[in-house]
Amino acid sequence: MKGMDKPVKYAYFPGCKIPHHLPEYGQSVETVCAALGIELVPLEFNCCGWPMRHDNELASIFSAVRNFAVAEEAGLPILTPCKCCFGNLKYAESRLAEDGKLVVLVGRLLAQDGLAMPKSINVSHLLSVLDEQVGVELLQRQTATPLAGVKVACHYGCHALRPGNVTGFDDPLAPTLFERVVTALGAETVDWDLRLECCGHPLRGRDGVIAESLMRKKLENAASVGADIIATACTYCQLQFDKERDGLMLNDPLRKAPPAVLVTQLIGTALGLDASVLGMEKNCIPWRVPVLQDRTL
């Protein structure tokens, strides 16, 4: 299998939740990136700062900026597979750009840790890298077993998409990136009303009722348009649609609603990689992968 013409190298920012709570994402990201020729360099990053943004903005922004400083020391751009990490890192970037007072405060905190205020900030979400660096054509070329006939509801996740002038991820009202990547794998994407709505996970532990209602609405909507799976590209969204859904009553019909599959698991499957290296067995709501025709046969 051949990757891109010129190798790309990123500082890998998995975020806090992947190691313990969603190892299958970490595993599949690493596997798929290796297969596509994206080199991921592990650095010792700290929390992106999103979880503490409810409590203290300075702590949140300092956390984020500290990561930029670490990445700059290594001279690498950051790649994260988590949309919440991505969103908060971008938020910190935009706040630094608009608030000189904050730059001074954060600079002082960085100096305590022997770090310098980063001169340039470069952070990408995995999907953007797949779209811009790897490219749809290469994905198509590398697809060994096209996901023909699989109907995918792409779930965008909020924090990468909005606010658009902070994240710059895709068109905040009419995004197409995720569908582009998924169709490159030979799958079919479905249009659904609640495509750009929130998964509800941010309210876990804060307002459980609404957190679950949001999840239900989305699952119902995806099911009603005939999706086979919901594709996610965010740690928290996957936790919500997979792990948290697993907490529903056993007879809840939504357990049978389309399972959530990580984008890297989808790509890996299309690349012909083994389910075990993609952590598929760790998904609580399993996706029974249909029999796919190997292109080489």
Partner: peptide
């Protein structure tokens, strides 16, 4: 839920979600 739809859709660019964050802070 911090989905930022309010802020994104505001025709007058009011930073609704950011303000809510700040109130929690």
């Amino acid at each position: 839920t911090t989905c930022y739809k309010c802020q994104e859709h505001c025709p007058q660019n009011i930073r609704v979600a950011d303000v809510l964050y700040e109130l929690r802070n």
